[in-house]
Every structure is written in structure tokens, then in C-alpha cells.
Design a protein around this nucleic acid. Sequence first.
DNA 1: ATTGTAGTTCGTTAATTTACGAACAAATGT
DNA 2: ACATTTGTTCGTAAATTAACGAACTACAAT
Lengths: 96, 96
Amino acid sequence: MSELKDKDKKIARYAKALGHPVRIYVLNLLSEQSCCYSGDLSEKLPIAKSTLSQHLKELKDAGLIQGEIESPKIKYCINKQNWSEAQLLFKEFLNL
Amino acid sequence: MSELKDKDKKIARYAKALGHPVRIYVLNLLSEQSCCYSGDLSEKLPIAKSTLSQHLKELKDAGLIQGEIESPKIKYCINKQNWSEAQLLFKEFLNL
DNA sequence: ATTGTAGTTCGTTAATTTACGAACAAATGT
DNA sequence: ACATTTGTTCGTAAATTAACGAACTACAAT
């Protein structure tokens, strides 16, 4: 009855955050262009802006992105530190 | 209003399957020892066997593992083809 | 025929996720 | 002051997820 390792929990936490097409889309975009506004995404995605906001919040809560106020907009960027951690964890997990 | 790409959906689908510590644990084990039985896992994990069965089913449904009957046990292995696909997709996605 | 083993399926419950529109907040522009 | 822009939060509903124990199925062994 060994307990689950923190590393397993961490990977699962990141994976869960990646577990929706919209969130994959957002991260893909951010890895290409480093930053974006919610409005940019809202134009391109076929979902309500409140739903998008929820997805962004989840990515934020998982630590994968961060928002910076640029009134009246909010500029979203990759959270580089955590993104690196996620890359490392997945790389190891996937034997890449 | 571009539609989400199939590739994004595929990555999200795999990521979702990875989104629980127990499932990470199982896949980790299977990448080490290639095969295992549900009982092996049940001994090691602090969850009910029915719950484990559910997690295995999810991994199966996502295509990441496959079960082979070896009465009265079931031998679980990585689904190599889909695992390779997942590796490739994540590798690309994560810029590894 | 009966028992035992291995694991799944069922029934249930609680929590989480996804989605929407409406209402709201903050800051800028008029 | 007031409207506009940008995005979040609220309230709600439907669907999915996670967990358990009990009941079940399939096969092997006695």
C-alpha cells in the first residue's frame, strides 16, 4: 500500500490542466507568440468568453500561464518556470 | 471562429487520461516492466479494486493500455502504437 | 458440484467540469 | 458624469469523474 508519489501527483495535475482542447489551443498559441489577450482568443474560439475565462483560470491555477494587467486588457503569457517543470516532468514520464 | 484542430483534441484526450495520479502510477509501472496484473496494482495502491478497475478502463478507453486475458487474471500492457502516438504528440506540443 | 480467485459491473453518492448568459468591475475615452 | 471596452464573476444546468461496497461473471481447482 505505498502512497502515491508527489511527482505522480504533479504530473497528473499538469496533465489534467492540459485535458481540454481549448487549453491545448491556448498553450500552443502561447508557445508560438509568447503572449496574447483574452480577446484574441475569444475571436478565434467558438466558445463564450465566460467559458474561455474559466479555461484561462484553470491554466493559471495549474501554474501554466500568468496574467499581467495592461488596462483595459490582460496580457497572458506562459509561466516559464512552471512550464519548464512540466516539460521536464513529461519528458521524463514519456521517456523522451 | 476557427474550429479546434483534431490534433488539439487528440492531445487533450491523452492528457485527460493522464490527469490522475493513479493512472500516472500505472503507466509509470508499465513503462518499467511492460506488463502487470490488476492484482499487482491493487496490492500497492490505497484504493478499492473497483476504483482501480475504473481507472484501468479509462486508460483502455483512451487507448493507452490494453488487456489480455490470462485466466483467471488479466495482463495489462502498454498499447505501444497509441503510446508512441501520444509520445510524439506531447513531444511536439512541449517543444521537446 | 462447490469453492476459490481475479477482476468487472452495478448502484449510489459527492464532487468537479463544462458551458452559457447576465451581471458586474476596472479603467479609458468622451 | 457617462459610455465603452475588456474581461471576470455569478448563477445555473447538464454531464462527467471519482470513490466505495456489493453483486456478479468467468475460469480453475478440488
